[in-house]
Design a protein around this nucleic acid. Structure first.
Lengths: 252, 252
DNA sequence: AATATTAAAACATCAGATGTTTTAATATTT
DNA sequence: AAATATTAAAACATCTGATGTTTTAATATT
């Protein structure tokens, strides 16, 4: 027979409770700010021990769905999942997938040129000023290191935020976060830094002229330049290839 | 003073352990398949109670980083984070963000036309056959419902898988999964279904001719048509707008 | 009125007991 | 000897109940 049965996972009490509460949230029965019963009462309600309920609470907290506070007015409260939770999750995933730099570049070339096209049509003077200050800060940084990464991320984040599309923000930010792990290792020399600043400036110039095509082309060129720069650089501890980082802890 | 201090999180034992183990994984000290000490031994090693360690294990398990098995040869094993974990996380996030259909369409129009361009250059006869069978199955489905969704997802998933870029796969699949929540509500009438099948067929035809531009244009048109169709339809329980689903449990 | 103390609610942690699952080793049967 | 059944042990799963800590509201004191 061609059937293949999946292993049925054990019926763990805590997991059962997690699913019940998560479903209640996704079904709209529990709203943001709602307080769940105290450990003691809820455990009695489910007919389980406090330990089991606590394990369920911990998991829901890890999902970002619950906030647990101590003290007299404390308890478990339904919470809106925040971006940090999702990004951590994506970082965990990308770590094992260890996608090649090519893959990151490819998805960036799909999204970010389009993003700046949108920006060109609606960017404000204030936002342009923000971006210019960002570039200035980067230029004045003597020998970059981690601070450069922060500025670089802030630059690209600002652009996606202008679009007002939170899905795009999430995706681009997550990719940036994942790329940090690679950039952190790359020896960013003076030349690389200069290139980034020049590219950013060209993008901002195009945006000031509200020229979508020009901005788009500048962004596309920038993304490809960054890839080229990263592939060219070498690190003592790790080897960077098109396929990904070669690290000790790769799966095989 | 313009400072704003963030609340410092309580030093919870379980969380401390979670972070230590997660760091060890991300630093490459723990590899896939590695077994952690038994609850008893590890708790003693950390100098904490079994309960605290168990809560940490539960959280790591929820992150998809750990697999915990019972029995004589059981224990806690480092695991590769799987797609399901990430998608669940994204579903939690999107639920509260409740992005508008516009936002989904926008990111899709950035990615999927480019995806089929790549496909046009490398698609095989086998893959074309798969796509055609998918369309046939959809056409034979009398009055769609949920089965249609599965076929629709499979169609788009196949295309991104052909690119071989796992980041793009993750993004597109997650968006599809999030869209299900909306599509499930939409009354997919005969006309809508026919439109989808026609569009899919045009895309496959272009792919068979290995014509990137034609495929790209067909995909772009398809995505916009789907949005139009969804905005046009109404549901009794919920109201679908460009801004998102109006549900009882929206934050305000 | 401002400050200090106290009490209570709720989570945090611990310790130890008992149950369940899984597998390896052993004993039994054919 | 091979197949089957039994047993033992390791490790997780769950429960119980005690004690500590945090936070805030109520109360007492200055």
């Amino acid at each position: 027979m061609g059937f293949k049965f999946e292993t049925v996972k054990a019926n763990r009490i805590s997991q059962n409770i997690v699913e019940q509460i998560r479903s209640a949230i996704l079904d709209g029965e529990l709203k943001i700010g709602d307080q769940l019963p105290s450990e003691k009462n809820f455990a009695r309600h489910f007919g389980v021990s406090k330990s089991s309920l606590r394990e369920a609470y911990r998991v829901l907290e890890a999902f970002g769905l619950l906030e647990i506070r101590q003290g007299m007015t404390g308890g478990a409260f339904i919470k809106e999942v925040d971006l940090t939770t999702v990004k951590n999750c994506l970082v965990n995933y990308f770590f094992f997938q260890n996608p090649g730099i090519r893959n990151y570049t490819q998805i960036r070339t799909f999204i970010e040129p389009e993003v700046v096209k949108i920006c060109a049509g609606k960017i404000t003077d204030e936002e342009i000023e923000y971006l210019e200050n960002n570039i200035l800060a980067m230029e004045q940084e003597p020998d970059g290191k981690s601070f450069i990464s922060d500025l670089d991320i802030a630059f690209h984040k600002k652009l996606v935020d202008i679009t007002g599309n939170e899905i795009i923000s999430l995706i681009v930010e997550s990719i940036q976060t994942a790329l940090i792990n690679i950039k952190r290792i790359v020896h960013t020399d003076e030349q690389f830094l200069k290139m980034v600043c020049n590219d950013h400036r060209k993008i901002v110039n195009a945006l000031r002229e509200h020229d979508p095509e020009k901005a788009s082309k500048a962004m596309l060129k920038h993304i490809n330049e960054v890839e080229k720069g990263m592939l060219a650089s070498k690190s003592g501890a790790m080897i960077i290839t098109e396929e990904g980082l070669l690290m000790q802890n790769r799966k095989n």
